[in-house]
């Protein structure tokens, strides 16, 4: 069974990409291949010109959060942030500084609550995962359905943050979502996947949202 079949796809530095498609379209599998978690049967993924398989440089500038499997769930959020920060040579003071800028995003529910990550709600776990990505100051950020499970205020804050790091710091962002409003709002380029193929590659314009809504209203052509 062919899960993902993409002859060619190029993402330029500084682009903001939105990945949409119904369940089972292959979005997460594509992400996992880019992150060298699944070996493609054929072809390769190049990051900065180097194959992600067999190389590890890409880990220096890539931050990603796909699901709870990325979190060390028996740590407290603080311990986890210090650990991730430590991997990027950040001291605890650095990490604390950075976390203080996220106070709004956390809404007082993450830090100093005396809970392990596994005891947080799913939305709060997502927040921990996303913040740990931001903490790494990546050049490439990959998030799989970051808006799922989190509350509307945080969704809006997250959208602003993502726009900001893309526009001001030039971070390449790759985001999948089922929320068409959100992706068309923050992404300059939309990839539409169906049954493992990228069937549309659109530069976002004022008509994109309507175009996507049309597609999803009819449903994938069988």
């Amino acid at each position: 069974m062919l899960v993902v079949n993409i002859p060619e796809l190029e993402i330029k530095k500084g682009e903001s990409i939105g990945l949409v498609g119904n369940n089972g379209a292959g979005k997460t599998t594509l992400f996992r291949m880019i992150l060298d978690l699944i070996r493609p049967e054929a072809g390769e993924v190049l990051s900065n010109g180097k194959n992600v398989m067999g190389h590890e440089q890409w880990k220096n500038y890539t931050a990603s959060y796909l699901d709870e499997g990325f979190l060390i769930d028996y740590l407290t959020p603080e311990e986890y942030f210090y650990f991730i920060g430590g991997l990027h040579q950040q001291t605890q003071a650095n990490v604390d500084d950075f976390l203080s800028t996220l106070a709004d995003f956390f809404n007082g529910e993450i830090l100093k609550k005396g809970k392990y990550i596994r005891d947080l709600s799913k939305g709060n776990q997502t927040k921990v995962g996303i913040s740990s990505c931001l903490l790494q100051k990546p050049e490439l950020l990959m998030l799989d359905e970051p808006f799922a499970n989190i509350d509307p205020s945080t969704q809006i804050r997250l959208k602003n943050t993502l726009k900001e790091i893309n526009k001001q710091q030039g971070v390449t962002t790759l985001i999948s979502s089922h929320d068409l409003n959100h992706v068309t709002d923050i992404c300059d380029r939309i990839l539409l996947m169906e049954k493992g193929k990228i069937i549309k590659d659109i530069a976002t314009s004022s008509s994109t949202l309507a175009e996507l809504e049309d597609y999803f209203a009819v449903g994938p052509v069988n």
Binding site: L37, K59, D73, I84
Partner: peptide, 13 residues
């Protein structure tokens, strides 16, 4: 196992 993906994608040799 529950966070093996996380270990693989992070900067851990």
């Amino acid at each position: 196992a529950s966070h093996f993906d996380g270990l693989l994608v992070n900067k851990i040799s």
